[in-house]
Design a protein around this nucleic acid. Structure first.
Lengths: 126, 126
DNA sequence: TAAGGTACTGTCATGAAGGTAAGTACCTCA
DNA sequence: TGAGGTACTTACCTTCATGACAGTACCTTA
């Protein structure tokens, strides 16, 4: 794997194939298609939610992964964090505009998968 | 196709949150959102392609991962494998109907990511 | 006094994902 | 004669993602 000096990216980098290794698209794609990233973005598409709510909804996520994934999504500008300095602490997470654009594209995909998942896993071949 | 209980599947199965851990949706979602899974599905959306073509287009993929990912996608019924018993061997991979449904949902997502990736990675915060 | 809830952070360990590289079998081209 | 192309499989090894768990700080309730 070579470290290439960045060449310019066409509007549709995968028009002739897939975008190159190491380009920003790969990075972002990895973030948004990560196991917990998808789940959290979908969960947040239903509105702002608190840490503990997200933890419950993204069933099976550990606190560490929740923190880590939220941080990544926040760094990418998909979610915003609103910490209220109250006791007990209250932190709300919500989608940014960019996050909503994304989840608008993610939701149909997740819905489709949810709808077809049973058929898919239970079928040896088709 | 659909589960035949009288209660029909809601349009959005995760209306009240995310689907539970360990359910088929999680499994399938992991397959289709896997690093190489996405790339291969997108690549194949442009038409049937041979092993060596896919290997070149999914830049950076190892032969092992290519074989493994294609097998998973084939087992899930997203791609079909057509091996012609010729010398030298020729094997074409293509999307099934199900695979095309999927990639139709995947493409806008990937396109969106490709379009915004630079802005996203280059922004410390927003 | 202690347990529990909120929202985290950090450390450690392991298991799985993924990379490297070699092997297979056959043919073609130089 | 041997290098190279096609389409893989297998073994080995490393690294990274993830999970388990403890700690922090503050308040409330029992």
């Amino acid at each position: 794997m070579k470290v290439s000096t960045s060449a310019k990216v066409p509007a549709f980098p995968f028009a002739d194939g897939i975008f190159p290794a190491g380009c920003p698209s790969r990075t972002v794609l990895d973030h948004v298609t990560s196991k917990w990233g998808v789940l959290l973005l979908v969960a947040l598409s239903e509105g702002p939610q608190r840490w503990s709510e997200l933890r419950r909804r993204a069933e099976g996520i550990s606190e560490k992964m929740l923190a880590q994934t939220l941080k990544t999504l926040e760094a990418d500008g998909f979610v915003s964090r609103d910490a209220q300095p109250v006791i007990p602490p209250r932190v709300d997470y919500s989608l940014t505009g960019r996050g909503e654009e994304l989840s608008a594209l993610l939701l149909p995909l997740v819905a489709w998968v949810a709808e077809h998942a049973e058929a898919i896993v239970s079928r040896p071949a088709s």
